[in-house]
Simulated scan of single mutants.
Amino acid sequence: MNPYQPWKSTLAFWTMMAQAQTVIAIRMLGMAGVLPAHARENHTMLAEKGPAFAEAAIAAGAAVLAGKSPDEIAQAAIRPIGRRTRANVTRLTKPRMPRHS
């Protein structure tokens, strides 16, 4: 076992959590009208959850069947969700011009 594996898993988890909190904050500011938000953002927010968690469960199950360590299993489960949170932060922090009416 890699002695740094627990640290890698912990870092992956907390990075994903920080990104998720950033996404939540930006979306809440968009709902409040403070930041410009895409009209379909609420739909996107709900539609992405199921597939992300299903992919995480499948990745964790595959890691279990491959005989991976608990840290590797956790990291496999976090990876798909982390990809989505990272993509959301990137998408939501792109500068947008407010729409003129």
Results as ranks from 00 to 15, higher is better:
Met1Gln: 14
Asn2Met: 04
Pro3Phe: 08
Gln5Val: 12
Gln5Tyr: 02
Gln5His: 09
Trp7Glu: 07
Lys8Asp: 06
Ser9Val: 12
Ala12Ile: 06
Phe13Gln: 10
Trp14Thr: 15
Thr15Leu: 15
Met17Asp: 06
Ala18Thr: 06
Ala18Cys: 10
Ala18Arg: 06
Gln19Met: 09
Gln21Arg: 12
Val23Ala: 03
Ala25Leu: 10
Ile26Lys: 08
Arg27Asp: 03
Arg27Ile: 01
Leu29Phe: 01
Leu29Cys: 00
Leu29Ala: 05
Leu29Thr: 01
Gly30Ser: 14
Gly30Val: 01
Val34Asn: 08
Pro36Glu: 12
Ala39Glu: 14
Ala39Trp: 09
Asn42His: 10
Thr44Gln: 04
Thr44Asp: 05
Thr44Tyr: 02
Met45Glu: 06
Leu46Pro: 00
Leu46Glu: 07
Glu48Cys: 07
Lys49Ser: 04
Lys49His: 07
Gly50His: 09
Pro51Asn: 15
Ala54Cys: 03
Ala56Lys: 11
Ala56Asp: 05
Ala57Ser: 11
Ala57His: 03
Ala63Tyr: 07
Val64His: 13
Leu65Pro: 01
Lys68Glu: 13
Lys68Val: 04
Pro70Tyr: 09
Glu72Tyr: 12
Ile73Arg: 06
Gln75Pro: 05
Arg79Met: 06
Arg79Ser: 11
Arg83Trp: 00
Arg86Cys: 02
Arg86Trp: 03
Ala87Arg: 13
Val89His: 01
Val89Pro: 03
Val89Leu: 05
Arg91Pro: 02
Leu92Tyr: 12
Thr93Arg: 12
Pro95Met: 09
Arg96Cys: 00
Arg96Ala: 06
Met97Ala: 06
Pro98Asn: 07
Arg99Thr: 00
His100Met: 12
